[in-house]
Simulated scan of single mutants.
Amino acid sequence: MRVMVLVKATEDSEKGFSPDPWTTAMMEAMGRFNDELRAAGILRMADGLKPSSQGRRIALDGPGRTVIDGPFAETSELVAGFWLWDVKDMDEAIAWGKRCPNPMPGPSEIEIRPLYEMADLR
Rank of each mutant, 00 (worst) to 15 (best):
A59P: 10
V79K: 04
S53D: 10
K88N: 10
D86W: 05
I68K: 04
R44Q: 13
M90S: 03
S76H: 15
P63A: 11
P51I: 07
A40R: 01
D69N: 07
G81S: 09
G55F: 05
G62V: 06
D86E: 15
W83H: 11
D61C: 14
D89V: 04
S52Q: 00
K88S: 13
D69A: 10
T66S: 14
S52G: 04
L43H: 04
F72A: 06
A40C: 04
G64R: 14
E77A: 08
F82V: 11
I42G: 08
W85L: 09
L43C: 05
A40P: 01
R65C: 03
M90T: 03
G41E: 00
I58M: 13
G64A: 15
G41T: 04
F72V: 05
V79Y: 08
D69W: 09
R65K: 12
W85P: 00
S52W: 07
S76C: 13
T66W: 05
A40V: 03
V67P: 08
M45P: 09
S53G: 14
R57V: 05
P51K: 05
I42P: 01
I58R: 09
D69G: 02
A73S: 13
L84W: 07
L49F: 10
S53E: 12
V87A: 08
S53H: 14
G62Q: 07
F82A: 04
F82I: 11
A46K: 04
L49S: 10
A80T: 00
A40F: 11
A39C: 09
P63G: 07
G81L: 02
W83P: 03
K50E: 15
P71S: 06
A46P: 08
D86C: 11
D47L: 14
P63T: 15
L78H: 07
I68D: 03
M45W: 14
D47A: 14
G81R: 05
W83L: 07
I68E: 09
F82Y: 15
A46M: 11
S52N: 06
K50W: 12
M45S: 15
S76Y: 14
E74G: 01
G48Y: 04
G64F: 12
P63R: 04
V79T: 10
I42Q: 00
R56D: 11
Q54F: 12
G64D: 14
G70K: 01
S52K: 05
K50Y: 09
A80F: 02
R65V: 07
R65M: 05
A59Y: 07
T75N: 09
L78A: 07
M45T: 13
A59T: 13
D86T: 12
V87P: 01
G41S: 03
K50T: 15
P51E: 05
A46I: 12
W85C: 02
M90D: 05
D69S: 09
V67L: 10
R65P: 06
P71G: 01
W83Q: 00
V79F: 14
D69Q: 11
R57M: 07
R56T: 10
L84T: 11
R57P: 04
W85D: 01
G55D: 02
I42M: 02
G70C: 03
A39M: 07
V79M: 11
I42W: 07
D69H: 04
T75P: 09
V67H: 08
A39D: 01
G41L: 12
M45H: 15
R57N: 08
L49G: 02
G62H: 03
L84I: 12
A39N: 12
R44V: 12
I68M: 01
G48V: 01
P51N: 01
A59G: 12
G55P: 01
E77D: 15
